[in-house]
């Protein structure tokens, strides 16, 4: 059994930008990841994923940080637990704050992931951090033009029917849009990952 206990989470607070997203916010420090995730040599369909984060009053959150973790265009994760090996050069990880866009959007320029395993729909794994969240929350972004795959996806199918739409981004051109609602009638589904 476990000998040690998990270190508790604490909020990312209002001042993460220079530490975690320095390049995006113009601080003189490097960043390990940004919203631009796919260089020219990465295979796959270029897409943009964007949205806003809304609080319980319906106001856009200007100091949230969003991270995404995704498979490459063939559904492979760049991690030893995925023995298939991934597209060289594609880390699959993006991070951006909502504080630099005038509309407080998060914006990721990436490639559309493939399905990791048969029966799963392609998706982005998402973590949301912000001042006022003592513990980060996990969600997912699915793609609105993958109706058949979404209908068969085991995770999406486990979500109550009337809440599934909170996880599915609508496509316009090469851009997928999905807002994250922390509270309210359209509260986003967050997973106990």
């Amino acid at each position: 059994m476990s000998d040690l206990k998990q270190t508790p989470s604490q909020t990312v607070g209002p001042y993460f930008a220079y530490g975690l997203t320095a390049r995006q916010y113009g601080y003189r420090h490097t960043s390990i990841a940004e919203g631009a995730m796919a260089g020219e040599d990465i295979e796959g369909e270029r897409i943009r994923v964007e949205g806003r984060v809304f609080d319980g009053d319906g106001n856009p959150v200007p100091d949230a940080m969003i991270e995404i973790w995704q498979a490459d265009s063939q559904g492979r994760y760049a991690h030893p637990a995925d023995g298939r090996g991934s597209n060289a050069g594609f880390t699959g990880f993006g991070r951006t704050g909502t504080g630099t866009d005038p509309k407080h959007r998060f914006i990721f320029d990436t490639i559309k992931p493939g399905a990791a395993t048969e029966g799963e729909a392609p998706h982005l794994n998402v973590v949301v951090f912000m001042r006022g969240l003592l513990t980060h929350v996990f969600t997912r972004i699915y793609f609105g033009d993958e109706e058949a795959a979404n209908a068969a996806d085991p995770v999406l199918s486990s979500v109550p029917t009337d809440r599934r739409s909170t996880l599915i981004a609508a496509r316009t051109g090469n851009t997928y849009r999905l807002d994250i609602h922390m509270q309210g009638d359209n509260e986003t589904v967050f997973f106990d990952v």
Partner: peptide
């Protein structure tokens, strides 16, 4: 108060993701 989700977290079966 206005930023924390109010609905229960949905359990997820862990996968490669």
């Amino acid at each position: 108060v206005k930023r924390g989700p109010t609905k229960p977290l949905v359990p997820i079966r862990q996968s490669l993701s």
